[in-house]
Computed example of a mutant assay.
Amino acid sequence: MRGLKGKTVVVTGGAGGIGAATCLRFAEDGARVAVVDLNQEAADGVVAKIKAQGGEGMAFSVDLTDFDATVAAVARIEDEFGAIDILVNNVGWDLFVPFLKSGPDFWTKIIDINLRAVLNITHPVLERMSERGAGRIVSIGSDAGRGGSSGESVYAACKAGVIAFSKTIAREQARRGITSNVVCPGVTETGMLENFMEAAGDKEKLRTAFTRAVPLGRLGKPEDLPGAILFLASDDAAFITGQVISVSGGLTMHG
């Protein structure tokens, strides 16, 4: 992709699944990658892989649900690694729980991780981007936030919020040269999906049902997502903002 070499990229939830695959792809294209994750050891592992392929990366352990800690981490990243050019809001977590079987403690956890964490890191990063008059933000949504998903009511609400938030940022910051777009994964083989299916029960039956529902005939893999993410972060997408693209194997086909 054009325009990624030498850029500083922050990927939240960068230690596993889609996040790790995205970090490695950015590094392959010559970007400096800040791997942000609560799990320091796992983040260090991703950085080791980046360095093994000749790339540049640093790991930052951050609790993104804590605003003050997040603001301090953004300052540290810029001090140690350079001005942030690209932010990928990938952090997320979910569990299969029908709404009437859930309660406020569960809602708070889901909202904090999937929505508040996005607000917490976008605010200080966007402040700096806006001052410089340049930047790319790519947030990972979900088609659950576009069409709903049984057992994921609060998660779906959060992802719908991420989509609306991203479009609003796109409008507010367009004149500052900043773009904001969303990539929505379909059913993707990650640790989060495994936990989701385990909680739902009859895991293999559910996996088979998901697979049959995908027109391309398989579940997504983490490596299926970075292409769309890097495109939206690149110079090739300089005239694209406020958009949502699904990477779902055709499971969802939104107009």
Rank of each mutant, 00 (worst) to 15 (best):
I169R: 01
T179I: 10
R128Q: 00
A174R: 03
Q173C: 15
F165Q: 12
A144F: 02
I178V: 09
A144Y: 04
I140L: 12
A156V: 13
P185M: 02
I140D: 00
G161S: 12
M129E: 15
Y155I: 06
P185D: 04
G151F: 06
G161C: 11
V182R: 00
G135Y: 02
R146C: 09
A134I: 08
S166L: 05
Q173T: 13
A134T: 10
G147D: 04
Y155P: 02
I169H: 01
C158T: 13
C184Q: 03
S130V: 10
I163V: 10
R175Q: 13
V154R: 15
V162L: 09
N181D: 14
R136E: 11
K167N: 02
R171V: 13
N181P: 12
A160T: 07
Y155L: 06
R132I: 03
S166D: 02
S130H: 12
G147R: 07
F165P: 10
A160K: 06
G141S: 08
I163L: 11
A156F: 14
I169Y: 00
G145Y: 05
S153T: 14
G177S: 08
S166M: 05
A156L: 15
R171K: 13
A156D: 14
A134W: 09
K167H: 04
R128E: 01
I140A: 01
G141M: 06
V182H: 00
A164H: 09
Y155C: 03
S149A: 15
S142P: 13
K167W: 01
A164E: 09
G135C: 14
S139Q: 07
C184F: 00
V154A: 14
G151I: 03
S142C: 13
I178F: 05
S150E: 06
T179N: 15
A144H: 05
E152I: 02
F165G: 13
I163N: 06
V138P: 01
R136T: 10
S149H: 15
S166I: 02
E131D: 08
G151M: 04
S180R: 07
A134P: 07
R128S: 00
R171M: 10
S166P: 00
C158G: 05
I140H: 04
V138K: 00
S166C: 04
S150P: 03
R136C: 09
C158K: 06
M129Y: 12
N181M: 11
P185I: 01
G133I: 03
G161E: 08
R176A: 11
V183N: 06
R175E: 12
S130K: 12
M129H: 12
E131Q: 10
D143I: 01
C158P: 04
V183D: 03
S166W: 02
S153R: 07
E172P: 10
G177E: 09
G177H: 07
G148F: 09
S180T: 12
E152K: 15
V182L: 00
E131F: 03
G135P: 08
G135K: 06
I140Y: 02
S130D: 13
M129S: 15
F165N: 11
I163D: 09
A157M: 05
R176C: 08
C158R: 14
R175T: 10
S142K: 12
T168N: 09
S150L: 08
V182G: 00
G148R: 15
I140G: 03
D143S: 14
N181K: 08
V138T: 02
G161I: 10
S180M: 11
I140N: 04
S153E: 07
G186R: 01
V162I: 05
E152S: 15
R176M: 13
